[in-house]
């Protein structure tokens, strides 16, 4: 049963191919992230369990409370042109770790509360939307 163990012990930490593949993978994904963020969001859509329940424009500071159920809630805050989850009492609170965003098609997810916030807008033919 020690054959794999011995084999690993004798192996080199990395292969020549790794020097190519792994950084390439990192750069490729970093590039994909970079390209997929067009920027310039104008409003945030709030979906609860797949259904759109609220739209918040990003140019007005405001807050919206989403009640998941008895006493469980998320507070979605728009401030300084960006949206974030400022308070959540869900099991993991991962949603509160997202940095405030205003990039179109970026999203914030609270999985335990089935909440998805998507930033949209900016891509239309108008010089300004009022």
């Amino acid at each position: 049963m020690g054959s794999l163990f011995r084999a690993v012990k004798e192996s080199k930490p990395f292969k020549k191919a790794d020097l190519l593949i792994i950084p390439l993978l990192m750069l490729a994904s970093a590039l994909a992230i970079f390209l997929l963020s067009p920027g310039g969001g104008s409003y945030a859509e709030i979906y609860a369990d797949g259904k759109l329940v609220r739209v918040m424009p990003l140019d007005v500071d405001a807050e919206f409370v989403y009640h998941f159920d008895e006493g469980r809630k998320n507070v979605i805050t728009v401030k300084g042109g960006k949206v974030s989850v400022s308070y959540a009492d869900c099991a993991d609170k991962i949603c509160t770790h997202y940095p405030p965003t205003d990039r179109a098609s970026s999203s914030i997810i609270c999985l335990p509360h089935k909440l998805v916030i998507i930033v949209r807008g900016g891509e239309n033919e108008y010089d300004g939307v009022v």
Partner: peptide, 30 residues
């Protein structure tokens, strides 16, 4: 063009002489 939360102020015309096109938010967008 100045745009501040529901108020837009336009100075002059666009650089090509055209008017500005301003989109009005649909009040029942949801």
């Amino acid at each position: 063009l100045f745009n501040m939360a529901g108020n837009v102020y336009a100075i002059g015309y666009k650089d090509d002489g055209a008017k500005f096109s301003i989109g009005i938010t649909d009040p029942r967008m949801i």
